[in-house]
Each structure stands twice: as C-alpha cells, then as structure tokens.
Design a protein around this nucleic acid. Structure first.
Length: 489
RNA sequence: AGCGAGGUAGGGUAGCCUGGAGUGCCCGCCGGGCUCAUAACCCGGAGAUCGACGGUUCAAAUCCGUUCCUCGCUACCA
C-alpha cells in the first residue's frame, strides 16, 4: 500500500462559456475521490482544478453579455467555485488562466520551446465562417459549409507560429510503448497509438485575430492559441520551475474527457519533451454521459445539473451515483430513475440498513464488543486499493459492496438478534468493525456519510491503515438514518 | 472512408489474453425464510442455441477466418 509519497492529480480546466454541469462535475468528483483516497493512504496530495478563461469563444460570450471579458470570466469562475464547494470538492488550488503567474509561466514556457528550435513561423490555412467568426478544419466542415450555422465558409490564410509536433512522433511512440498506463484506460490506447503512427502534423499555436489571449513572446501581433495556454496550467499552478513544482511534478494523473484526450496524450507530452520537463505518469480519458438516453445539447437544453440535483437528493448520493453507474472511462446514461434505484437499492437497503440495524443491536447490548474476525475474509482491501490505482472506481465500489452484503448476510445467517453473551459480543464486534472499515473505504466517495457512520459508531475517522479488524473501541449511539428512501414515480 | 471498441438470460455486466460441463455478479420477475432493520435483510427458482456462418481441437463464449449489427475516435464540445 505504500506507493509514492506524493500524489498530484488534475482535472481539465473548464471553459468559462458554460456553467457547471454533469460533464465537468464528473471528472472533478473523480479527481476529488482519488485525491481523498491518496490522503487516506497518508500521501502528500495536490489536487488541482480551475477554469480556462481565454479564447475567441469567451470573448464572444462576454460581448454577448455586454461585459468586459475579465468581468465576465470572474463571474463564471466564481460559479464553478461555488459548485465545487456544494459538492464537497477538496481541491488544493483553483487555477485561473487569467492569473498573472500563469500568464508569466506561459510566456516562459513558450520561450523555452522557441529556444529549443521547435517553433517556426508559417501560415495557417483554414476555413472561416465570417458571421460566426470561427475557423474550421477541412474535416470539421459539414458538406463544405459551416458546421455550426450551415452558411458558406471561405478559405483564409494567416501568419501563425507552429509547434514542431512532427519531430516527436518516435519519442511519443516510445513513451506509449514503455509506459503502458500512460494512455488510460486501455480502450483509448490503440486509438491514439495508431493515429500517431499515421503521422503527426505540426500544430498552429498562435492567432492574430483573437486578442483575449496571452501575448506571444517576441511578436506583438500574435497571441497564444487557447489550448497551448490551457495545457500549461498543470505546471504554472505549481509555480514551475520552482515552488511546489519541485515537490509535486510530474503529475501522477491528468484526468481528462475523451474529447480532449488528443491534446493531453500527444501534444502535451511533446511540448514537455521540447521544454525538457518530466512527463506525467498517466493520462486518463473518461467517457461521456447521455441524459435520459439522449445526447446532452444546448438545443435540447437537457444538461444534467448535479448541483440542483444535490439539493433534491444529497451530495453523497450524487457523488456515489456518478462513480457507480458506469465504469470510469466508458460512456453511460444519466437518468433520475436509475439514480433513485441506486439510492433505494444500494444506499438505503444495503449500506444504510446495515449501519442502522447493527447500531440498534449494539445499543441494546450491555457489554464489551470482542471476538474473532469472522467477517474479515470477505474484505479485500488490497484489491480495492489496486482498483483505485487504475482509477477503477466502479470495481472498487463493487468490492466494497460485496463486503456490505456479506455483513448483512452475516446478521441473517447467525440470527444475531437472538444471540446472547459471548456469541452476541462476537457478532457485534464483527459487525461494528465492518461498519467502521466501510466508513473509511467510503470516505473518499461519500465524505459526509462516512463521517456520520464514524460518529454513530463513536470512533474517530480512520485512514487506510485502519482498514483491518482490530479492537473495537467505539461507543455506538444510533443517529439519524444515512439515507432516506426516495419515492419512485 | 480510415482506425478503435463491442454484440453473454427481460435490462446491465464479468468471464475471453493463458480453451475444459454456460460459471459469476447487480437490477427486474416468481416463490420462500426472518423479524434486529427504512415493505428493509437472507435463501431458493424461472429465464441464454454466449450476434450469425465456417474452421482448428478429444473439448470453443474463449483460438482462427468470414459475415451481419451497434457504438466510439478522426486534431480546440466535460
């Protein structure tokens, strides 16, 4: 269980043209859980999230809101912070790409690429939709027209600085080959490798038309394209090249959405190679949610909002559901019916009921809780820890739930309610220890619930080291039910 | 089109790499048990020609080939 002493996890930084919704909540909750897990292991953890605030789309959104870009992004950035507070996100730093330190780091980073001869001036060619003021690649066009509005596009050329991505093809392939976990989950691995094998084109990294951006060092007509700016947040947040950068870099995992996997799995490591900076250990691309079976889209207005859901149900239920409904990395569907089914079936009937019945029995018993660890054989802490190493939250929860079910079964099989004396003491010892260990294992997923369990057991919240049967020293006192049953339909 | 993933009981999955009686898990359904517990918990049962065709083998969900279907990625959507 003793892995590295430090752990650095990041979420994508979220583009401020949208309010928080399930799409950005999902990786944020996932990062929060893995950060909390590593804290339970006793590691020094740095958990970074933030907002991506530059670019043309932000500029336009600010214009539409009749606000200065900075005023606009301040507002939205705050909404993210509020949402994360509601959802119990324990980030260590919230970076904004408009932070002065970040702007400075971007300029220095790019100068480094220039020094190393990986940046050259060329011409960017693309299709431009005048009314939308947007560039598109050949592939993005829909029947030769603007994919957004369907109007005519025109071929334009503009000066641009390029990053020599092509130069790093072999080194990238070597990286993927040597480090199997770099491209995670496995399902994404071959997809990226084959595309890289197919050849890499140098990428345009500046624009002259977008002014709401970081100035390009050494050429005042150019501004850094948002994706370059955004990627650098992972090191600028640490104060690269000094400060906590020295403690926490390289990142142990960058959690990203599959749509931005290319940038993180290919372009970002190439940029780091060019700058002579160590590479992150893992890029984990998660899947997407549909909403009630339909793709979430602005036109349908069907974005799932976990913040408002969390006031209707509970934060912990939402956090649990996000990790339990589908394996991290795959796609899945969000439906309120399914959420209710998991609350009633798993949180109420399995977990909540277990804790409640155990505490009822324990309160009635007058004596010490002592015995031999009969239930421990159903507990697979090592397996759970290994699942968490792979960010397999789904697998970890499956194992935790197997233990919860075994504990419920133990009560029935042994007719615990009818036991007396030493037999009762032994049974309650096992059950109370089971609940205590569950409180620890569940803590990263459902912090409030876990703390409530610990409190009702009358014990301090433990760490991963305490996930083994030992002496039960608590003073159980039943409190309120962990989860209330919700009405279906 | 290219590349990738997948098709296992009513739904969702594991098993496939390293062949060995369709073996497991969750939900749903039917029946039973129990009464500590939030109509909660526990047990049992029904339900699958493992997408289709062909091959290898004593033996195929598992290996090989073909085929049909679904989904994802393809360079700034979480």
């Amino acid at each position: 269980m003793d892995k590295q002493e430090k752990f650095y996890v990041t979420t994508p930084i979220y583009y401020v043209t949208d309010a928080p919704h399930i799409g950005n909540t999902y990786p944020t909750v996932a990062a929060d859980i893995i950060a909390r897990w590593h804290r339970l292991r006793g590691e020094k953890v740095f958990f970074l999230t933030g907002t991506d605030e530059h670019g043309e789309k932000v500029q336009k959104a600010a214009d539409a809101a009749k606000e200065e870009p900075k005023v606009f992004v301040d507002k939205i950035s705050l909404r993210y912070k509020e949402a994360w507070k509601t959802l119990g996100i324990s980030y260590d730093k919230f970076i904004r790409t408009t932070d002065p330190e970040h702007l400075d780091a971007v300029a220095r980073f790019i100068s480094k690429l220039v020094e190393n001869g990986d940046v050259y001036k060329g011409q960017y060619e693309g299709w431009y939709c005048v009314p939308d003021e947007s560039f598109f690649t050949e592939l993005q066009l829909k029947d030769g027209k603007c994919p957004d509005c369907g109007r005519e596009v025109k071929r334009v050329k503009e000066d641009s600085y390029f990053f020599k991505l092509s130069k790093y093809q072999d080194r990238l392939l070597e990286l993927y080959d040597k480090n199997e976990d770099f491209l995670s989950p496995k399902l994404r691995r071959q997809e990226v490798i084959n595309r890289v094998k197919g050849g890499l084109k140098d990428v345009s990294m500046t624009r002259t038309t977008v002014k709401w951006a970081v100035p390009f060092p050494g050429d005042k007509d150019h501004f850094v394209y948002v994706w370059v700016d955004a990627l650098i947040n992972y090191i600028s947040a640490l104060g690269w090249p000094d400060g906590t950068f020295k403690v926490f870099w390289p990142a142990d995992v960058h959690i990203v959405g599959k749509e931005i996997n290319w940038f993180h799995s290919v372009i970002w490591p190439a940029m780091l190679m060019s700058a002579g900076i160590e590479l992150p250990a893992m890029i984990f691309a998660h899947g997407w949610w549909t909403s009630e079976g339909k793709k979430m889209s602005k036109s349908l207005g069907n974005f799932v909002d976990p913040v408002s859901l969390s006031s209707k149900y509970s934060v912990d239920a939402i956090r649990y559901f996000l990790m339990r409904e589908m394996p991290f990395g795959e796609d899945g569907d969000f439906s309120e019916e399914s959420l209710k089914a998991r609350i009633n079936g798993e949180l109420v009937a399995d977990l909540g009921n277990l804790v409640y019945r155990v505490l009822t029995l324990a309160e009635k018993f007058d004596g010490k809780f002592d015995g031999s660890a009969d239930l421990e054989k159903h507990l697979d802490v090592v397996g759970i820890d290994e699942s968490m190493d792979r960010l397999d939250y789904y697998g970890a929860l499956e194992k935790i739930w197997a233990f919860i079910r075994s504990s419920n079964k133990y009560i029935n099989d042994n007719k615990v309610w009818s036991l007396k004396g030493a037999e009762m003491s032994n049974a309650l010892y096992n059950l109370l220890e089971a609940c205590r260990i569950c409180s620890i294992l569940l803590y990263p997923f459902m912090p409030d619930t876990a703390q409530s369990i610990a409190q009702q057991l009358g014990v301090e919240m433990g760490t991963l080291k305490d996930c083994k049967f030992g002496a039960f020293t608590g003073k159980p006192k039943r409190g309120k039910m962990l989860f209330e049953k919700v009405l279906t339909k």
